[in-house]
Design a protein around this nucleic acid. Structure first.
Lengths: 95, 95
DNA sequence: CGTCTATTTCGATAATCTTCGAAACATGTC
DNA sequence: GACATGTTTCGAAGATTATCGAAATAGACG
């Protein structure tokens, strides 16, 4: 199971949540995502790094572009993390 | 539906997640929670405020103590927020 | 009322986070 | 190789956050 801290940290920023919503519609290049958000490419790249660290997105190099995509196995993982915090099963500590 | 920002912000801090895990076992006074965490009562009070703003916990005054409890309707709400970001059906929790 | 206990609020500090422009890096094309 | 395009990394500024001790508030009780 993924570590909780990077995931919750990644979800804490509204721009990063917007990026994830965009990627739901399908993979996008960094430039395409940048065009849809009111932030610089440098800032966007920083957000992508955090999302990658949390394993929420995957990156694939294609030509001179980088294509980002939602990590498909992520929903079940994050739901499990959520249940670890809010659910009724016995508590487990996080790393 | 609850606003997403305060909820995700509240979940971003490990101490706050630990507080929520503690409250899963049942309501606790602020002092009881403070005794279980390595932070000052002032800091804990600050965390409780954020958790209340996010509607993740409820507070009830009993005598001179304040009893905090998990907001029971919270799991479904937060799961909905998560789906708004990640967009797929969740794994069902145990009844 | 005075005091004790439980908790919050205040004020300040340190750490973390977001953000940007500029420079560096990578990759494709001529 | 030279150049253009897409993206990342660097370095720094500004905002937000976590944290604490001290002071303030709230309720119980003699």
């Amino acid at each position: 199971m993924s570590r909780a801290a990077p995931v919750f940290k990644a979800l804490a920023d509204p721009h990063r949540r917007e990026i994830l919503r965009l990627l739901r519609a399908g993979p996008r290049s960094a430039g395409e995502v940048a065009a849809a958000l009111p932030i610089s490419k440098a800032t966007l790249s920083h957000h992508f790094n955090l999302l990658k660290d949390a394993d929420l997105v995957r990156c694939e190099v294609r030509g001179q572009a980088r294509i980002y995509a939602l990590n498909t196995s992520v929903v079940e993982d994050v739901t499990a993390l959520l249940l670890d915090v809010l659910g009724r099963a016995p508590a487990r500590s996080e790393p």
